[in-house]
């Protein structure tokens, strides 16, 4: 048969069936051919359930489509032609794309800039949720306002290791109204300014930098992950404060405790009224929350709210999961 095929001479239901045989990445390319092909792909009803944007010296748009059982994903890469990785990357200009691990670039019939690409992906794969953006070293080459304008609605931000404080501050100034924030360190000049992040009403904050007990006590987020270990004494004080009413929005927190200079974890709950959970209950909670724990207690605060403290000892650390039940 000829290498060409007059696809549009076929009835629409057959064209749809042909498209159902293609991977979603190929469907993206097909949707770029014309407005007709765009509407055909859109009509297939494939939905993206997450769109991650990775910004380093290039931009990667990772899209997951379908359901967990029938997952299809691809990573679309936007590169600048320039050999100099530090040269400014103007995302307002038309740009072609390629899939990760493929050198073959492609572009729509009408040239797209980065913002047009995102709009197209959102429209074709029915994605109207805010974006999850990761900044990596190299992202300095992008003009922040253009990025913000192109991505429009960003609610999850992850500033990775290796990004300078200046760049981090620039990112944080431009991307506000966040629900989730991940910071590797405190980019603000003064150490105590880290409280500015903890005090915000995020759904989730993950912090890898240095902090004090006072910082955690100010936390207004529903979910917290802090990676630097604190001492048993500090955690003990945190729980006592929580019982008295601090961190009213907190729902779950994950942290680790350094027990290098301690024989056991006895100091953890010293002076705190708590009940150990039955083995069966512990197993049930571990299963439900997908955690590992070798010891679990319930503490209650003065207003009646209870929380489970699950601990899991490994090497010189005790990993703590703190879950409240409202």
């Amino acid at each position: 048969m000829k290498p060409t095929f007059p696809l549009f001479r076929l009835p629409e239901n057959v064209i749809v069936q042909v498209l159902q045989n293609l991977h979603s990445s190929q469907l993206l390319i097909f949707s770029l051919v014309s407005s007709k092909t765009k509407s055909l792909v859109t009509s297939l009803g494939f939905r993206a359930f997450t769109v991650f944007i990775n910004i380093s010296h290039e931009i990667g748009v990772m899209v997951h489509i379908g359901t967990l059982e029938h997952l299809s994903s691809w990573n679309l890469i936007f590169r600048n032609d320039s050999n100099d990785q530090n040269a400014e990357f103007d995302i307002t200009c038309p740009i072609s794309a390629s899939f990760q691990f493929e050198n073959k670039t492609f572009q729509p019939s009408t040239p797209f800039n980065f913002s047009n690409w995102l709009d197209h992906i959102r429209a074709v794969f029915c994605y109207n949720k805010p974006l999850h953006v990761f900044f990596w070293p190299g992202s300095e080459r992008f003009e922040m306002v253009s990025l913000k304008n192109a991505m429009k609605n960003v609610n999850c931000l992850d500033i990775s290791e290796g990004i300078t404080d200046i760049q981090s501050r620039k990112i944080l100034q431009n991307f506000k109204d966040l629900n989730e924030l991940t910071l590797r360190s405190n980019p603000l000049k003064d150490t105590c300014e880290v409280q500015k992040f903890f005090i915000q009403n995020f759904e989730f904050i993950k912090f890898h930098g240095i902090y004090l007990l006072d910082d955690i006590l100010l936390t207004n987020s529903e979910g917290v992950i802090i990676t630097r270990p604190i001492s048993q004494k500090q955690f003990n004080r945190f729980v006592k404060h929580w019982i008295r009413g601090s961190n009213p929005r907190l729902q779950n927190m994950s942290l680790s405790i350094d027990i290098t200079n301690s024989v056991s974890g006895d100091l953890l709950l010293k002076g705190i009224p708590c009940d150990e959970l039955e083995e069966e209950e512990q197993q049930e909670i571990c299963q439900e929350l997908s955690i590992q724990s070798d010891y679990m207690v319930v503490v209650r605060r003065n207003d009646g709210t209870s929380a489970v403290i699950a601990s899991n000892k490994y090497e010189n650390n005790i990993h703590i999961y703190f879950f409240t039940f409202y």
Partner: peptide, 26 residues
């Protein structure tokens, strides 16, 4: 279904410009 799969094979691995050539827009 077999016919459709056969046509889909012609489109796989093609970029936009190549697809335009393959499907000969009407």
């Amino acid at each position: 279904s077999y016919c459709c799969e056969r046509i889909a094979r012609m489109l796989r691995g093609k970029n936009t410009q190549e697809m335009i050539k393959v499907i000969t827009l009407p």
